[in-house]
Design a protein around this nucleic acid. Structure first.
Length: 107
DNA sequence: CGAATGACTCCTT
DNA sequence: CAAGGAGCCATTC
């Protein structure tokens, strides 16, 4: 699969994450048909524009935390957007039990 | 081309 | 909870 196709599939999965829900990098990788390649998802997110129509802010790491230095501007934008959608942070993380996106088989 | 890098994750100390 | 290591693989040097 080409690089372009791979990133397109990753973006397609991220676009399906609904408001008020989050998904982990590993989860996105899996749904995109790239199991075990969570890093590539992070890479694809980094390549997006901050104002991209792809909801990159709904993608967080397996600990439920934002995978960017807390001082990073993008990290602040990400947290603000998530809280604006109703996601609650407990310290520096989100309860995946409560907010993780659970996609239905087919849609 | 080899080595380092990194918006990751899992497992072990 | 903190650290370290291994697996992962596109990208950059």
């Amino acid at each position: 699969m080409t690089d372009v196709a791979r990133r397109a599939r990753i973006r397609a999965v991220v676009r399906r994450i609904p408001r008020g829900r989050v998904a982990t990098y590993g989860q996105v990788a899996e749904l995109a048909g790239l199991p075990g390649q969570a890093r590539q998802v992070g890479y694809a997110m980094a390549a997006l524009d901050v104002d991209s129509r792809v909801p990159w802010h709904r993608v967080i790491n397996a600990r439920g935390a934002i995978s960017l230095p807390s001082a990073d501007h993008s990290a602040l934008i990400q947290r603000a957007r998530l809280e604006a959608e109703g996601i609650v942070f407990e310290g520096d993380r989100v309860s995946l039990d409560r907010f993780r996106w659970r996609p239905r088989a087919a849609r």
